[in-house]
């Protein structure tokens, strides 16, 4: 027992009293995120958080970046999904390590899950970690993970209003990727308008149109992240 700690003062029977708590429930996640960040720094590992809706091309983008960077960096991927390890299996075909994180019912990764996943890797043997968040354009913005950079991926198939409808996640982004530009015409979606929306909401972020399946634009994403 710390001698500085006095006994808890207890109320008399039937007495009503207030307890000032000032406890921020979201603060614990931010604290663990900071711990992750300093752990990664200790090992000189750069972590990139990739966020965006389901089916937008997050995994395909990560695969494209791995192809470009495999010779330069030792890479691992943390792959968040509610269930299944389908995407993690896709990733390991590129000869890099993958840690699947199943969140169960939770709509986002949190810093504690990432901390647990990092314990499964030998950080001294790595330079770069991609963290693929659960497919969702809302919740991941609330939960920093401790990554150095955050990428938000959207695609033209989500329609013309994705960015203005979800402004807050784009405010968290360092790089905003507009994917599937090869389908823009078929979808009747104007890529330049999406780009203008992104730049208006977050003038600091770099916006990159891509076709991740063909690889178009992926090198520009990598450069925008400062990895090339």
């Amino acid at each position: 027992m710390n001698p500085g700690m006095k006994d808890v003062v207890k109320a008399e029977e039937g007495e009503v009293y207030d307890v000032e708590l000032e406890a921020d429930i979201l603060e614990s996640n931010r604290r663990i995120a900071e711990e992750n960040r300093s752990l990664l720094r200790t090992y000189n590992v750069t972590a990139v958080d990739v966020m965006g809706p389901t089916g937008t091309g997050k995994t395909t983008l990560i695969e494209g970046m791995i192809r470009l960077l495999k010779g330069r960096f030792r890479i691992a991927v943390l792959k968040g999904d509610l269930t299944t390890t389908i995407d993690a299996e896709t990733i390991i075909r590129h000869g890099v390590e993958a840690v699947p994180i199943n969140t169960g019912k939770e709509c986002h990764l949190d810093a504690n899950l990432v901390r647990k996943a990092l314990q499964k890797l030998r950080l001294e043997d790595l330079d770069l970690i991609f963290i693929e968040n659960v497919g969702n354009l809302i919740c991941p913005a609330e939960f920093p993970l401790g990554s150095e950079k955050r990428v938000v991926v959207v695609s033209v198939t989500e329609g013309p209003y994705t960015i203005v409808k979800h402004p807050f996640i784009f405010m968290e982004a360092d790089v905003i990727v507009i994917n599937k530009i090869d389908l823009a015409e078929a979808m009747g979606v104007d890529v330049d308008k999406l780009r203008a929306d992104a730049e208006k909401i977050n003038p600091r972020a770099k916006v990159v149109p891509t076709n991740c399946r063909s690889g178009e634009g992926v090198e520009e994403v990598v450069k925008a992240l400062g990895l090339m």
Binding site: K10, A11, E12, E13, G14, E15, V16, Y17, D18, V19, E20, L21, E22, A23, D24, I25, L26, E27, E142, P167, F168, M171, K200, I201, N202, P203, R204
Partner: peptide
């Protein structure tokens, strides 16, 4: 909403408004 500064056109950073804080609780002894 935009991160554009209304004064100079620079970029702003969010400094508060991310909290979910239990301020106080009222207890019966």
């Amino acid at each position: 909403p935009t991160l554009l500064c209304p004064e100079c056109g620079g970029t702003v950073k969010i400094v508060s408004g991310r909290e979910c804080t239990i301020k106080r609780i009222k207890l019966l002894g």
